[in-house]
Computed example of a mutant assay.
Amino acid sequence: MNSSARSSAPMRGIDHLAFVTDDLPTTMDFYTRVLQMRLVHVRRVPFEQDRGQPPYDNLRHYFFDMGHDQLLAFFEYPTGLARQNRDLPGGMQHVAFHVEPERFDALLAHVRGAGVDVIGPVALGGRFWSAYFYDPNGIRLEFATSRGPRQDGVVDSVLQSEDEARAELGTLFADPARVEFWLGQMPLREHADAS
């Protein structure tokens, strides 16, 4: 059974991710020229109190097509604000874009050819191969792909055997009942991967 048939999540996926920039022209150039996303929507957003929106009025809010009917968006904040720390709780550590294996090497070559420093690709175990770099705003980005013998979907590719999941959950919970509870929530592979 594939992961979409097993999924009980009421969401289909990402509608949009919204980040902050203080240099929208440079951000537009990077995401369209380097990452080859299309700019698809430009607008201004009025300030609305008590809605969790940015604390500025009439902000630019621009959207890029990340593929598969999902958007990446940026708000343009005033210059001179402090930068966030991606390595503190509540921060976003990085964004990983899935790249089909047959397009991975060419896309890395394109990004490097645009003058971007890329770390990797590195093997992360199992099917995971990743390469890391930063956008002009300091947002850490990742290209993730599979170099394993199985070409599952993204969700199916991370499924584990019960033994693998039990071992890891046991490092988080001392109570076996809590481990069993969480194992009961997870779709599992019948056997550990040989890869």
Rank of each mutant, 00 (worst) to 15 (best):
G184H: 05
H110Q: 09
S157R: 08
F128T: 11
D65P: 12
T27A: 12
P176S: 13
D152M: 08
V158G: 06
E162F: 02
F30L: 11
D50A: 12
V45Y: 09
L71A: 11
D87R: 09
H110P: 05
V95Q: 05
D152E: 11
M28N: 03
P136G: 14
A73K: 00
I119F: 01
A9W: 11
H191R: 15
A96K: 11
F75S: 00
R140H: 02
L183T: 07
S4P: 00
V99F: 05
P176G: 13
P176Y: 10
N58R: 12
L183W: 06
L107N: 09
Q53K: 10
R60D: 15
M37A: 02
D105V: 07
E180S: 11
T32M: 07
E164F: 07
H16D: 04
A123K: 02
G91Y: 03
E142P: 00
P121R: 03
Y62W: 15
R43M: 14
A165Q: 05
L108V: 08
S4T: 10
G13K: 02
N58A: 12
H191D: 04
A9R: 15
A5D: 13
A123W: 11
A167N: 04
H98Q: 10
D175P: 02
H191P: 00
M28R: 13
D15Y: 09
N58L: 09
A123E: 11
D156N: 05
Q160C: 12
L81C: 07
Q36C: 10
V116H: 04
H16N: 11
I119H: 06
M37E: 01
A165S: 12
P25L: 06
D69A: 14
G91Q: 04
P89A: 06
Q36K: 15
S8E: 10
P55A: 14
D15C: 05
D135N: 02
E48A: 15
R83D: 05
S8N: 09
G90W: 04
R44S: 14
F173K: 06
L17H: 08
G13T: 03
F64D: 08
Y56H: 14
D29T: 13
S146H: 02
F47P: 00
V95G: 10
R103H: 13
L88C: 06
R38G: 10
V116P: 01
G80A: 06
A192S: 15
N58W: 03
F64V: 03
E48L: 14
L188E: 04
F143H: 11
S146I: 02
G91H: 04
H41S: 08
D105I: 04
F181H: 15
N85S: 13
F63E: 06
G13P: 01
V179A: 09
D135K: 00
V20F: 00
P121M: 03
S195P: 00
A82C: 05
A192D: 06
E190N: 10
V118D: 09
Q49P: 14
R127L: 04
D193I: 07
D152H: 09
M28E: 14
V42Q: 15
T21H: 06
H61L: 15
R127W: 01
H16W: 08
S8A: 11
F97T: 08
R43W: 01
S146D: 14
L169K: 13
